[in-house]
Design a protein around this nucleic acid. Structure first.
Lengths: 233, 233
DNA sequence: CGTTCAAGTGTCTTTGAGCCACTTATAATA
DNA sequence: TATTATAAGTGGCTCAAAGACACTTGAACG
């Protein structure tokens, strides 16, 4: 009776960051069977002794691998079936997290186990992942892409302070297409999600750009319309 | 080791239907402790012996209580914590389902246990529910309200064939405000989600209305913009 | 045959996206 | 000091779709 209903339950955070003009996600090398030696998401079983709820379980996993305490974190979807783990029925709650590229070296923060940023190209990670984790990455990316179109989530990937060119680049990297500078400025200036920071960034011999920071790093703003993409003719 | 990680896992479908000009949700009376005698969502534990995955577990619960095999069903969110069930750590995956008001009597389809439609007013059920089920209903309703604004989900609550007045009423009941007839016609006629059905409904001595049906009862259509609500002045 | 009433249409205003040319500010160079 | 290159930022157009609401249409009934 008990055995039929108690299920192995994990959280799998898909941690996104952007550098080198590419979206990356954090993967760790598995040290135990099954899939020993394969790369996988930095998730793991919920621990009923130390986790109060699912959200804090996801935060714990995040903290263990990246040492970042308070990124933007959002639940995506839950997948569970008899077949996704060879050991039997299992459930995993998928999250995605956005953070600026951490300065600290990853390996140092997590002792022995291997950790690294894997580029996400065209919807999936470049290397094969354990279990159904490639599908989980795809789910998280789909959600992120949709949400970037009608909210201010994308800027949570930027270190502060940032310029409008940074905002534009981050949108273009996530969506994989050009976006209109003017549309972004209308949105972000009109909504009050960002505020001016001191100073201005000058790069090379061009006009210096105004610097901004987020007013609130824990919430996102919902714009009234979705970005439409390029016009057809 | 096993005990710390294997968690009681359930699915809780919030089943919506509309009649008497009100949104209703299906509740059942609990026959066992805890919360014996209280009303609750028609959910229950995932059964690893008979359920292949979470979605089919939700469909099974639905079939057991309503005898409806193929409604519109969508995952909302997963909540899990040490405190939501007095017996200990538990996880539940919340779904919402939309169906036309079933003609058959509910009690007859499910033997002994009491089942009934409870009106959902102003965001919550009118009576208190077991566990955190009122919060789960609120989560499902929030999702439904948001989604009605930019998709064709709402019509999955209508029995076929239906008229444009039916479409308008269903939107007004869910959103709790007046909706522009013209906007709905632009959306639904322009998108091809509905098709004309034979005949026309005449009520009283007015002009008869064209009847429609859904082209596909398993999917929904995403419109390009969200409804905006009334203009302020 | 005219009245009644919802069904359905015409059409104006408003909002915000896409597009793209134009002006502005800085630093390197002549 | 003047010129020029380059990115920063603005102005202003077109377009699609929402809101608002008056208008026309058509069947039923006296």
């Amino acid at each position: 009776m008990e055995e039929r209903h108690a299920i192995q339950t994990s959280v799998d955070p898909v941690i996104f960051t952007v550098f080198d003009g590419q979206l990356h996600t954090l993967v760790v090398k598995r040290t135990i069977e099954p899939y020993k030696g394969c790369w996988s998401l930095p998730g793991g079983l919920v621990d009923t002794e130390q986790d109060l709820d699912l959200h804090s379980a996801a935060l714990r996993k995040l903290k263990e691998k990246t040492n970042v305490a308070a990124p933007y974190l959002e639940q995506v979807e839950t997948v569970g079936s008899a077949s996704r783990d060879p050991r039997g029925w299992s459930v995993t709650v998928v999250y995605y997290a956005l953070m600026p590229r951490p300065e600290i070296a990853l390996a140092a923060t997590h002792g022995a186990s291997e950790v690294r940023w894997e580029p996400v190209t065209d919807g999936t990670a470049a290397i094969p992942l354990a279990f159904d984790h490639e599908k989980l990455v795809r789910l998280a990316l789909e959600r992120l892409r949709a949400k970037v179109g009608y909210t201010s989530v994308a800027v949570h990937l930027l270190p502060e302070p940032f310029t409008f060119l940074d905002i534009q680049h981050i949108h273009e990297v996530i969506l994989g297409r050009k976006v209109e500078k003017k549309s972004l400025m209308r949105r972000y200036l009109g909504s009050g999600v960002i505020e001016e920071a001191q100073g201005a960034r000058k790069e090379g011999r061009m006009r210096p750009a105004q610097l901004y920071r987020l007013k609130d790093r824990r919430t996102i703003h919902y714009f009234t319309r979705t970005m439409e993409g390029p016009r057809e003719e």
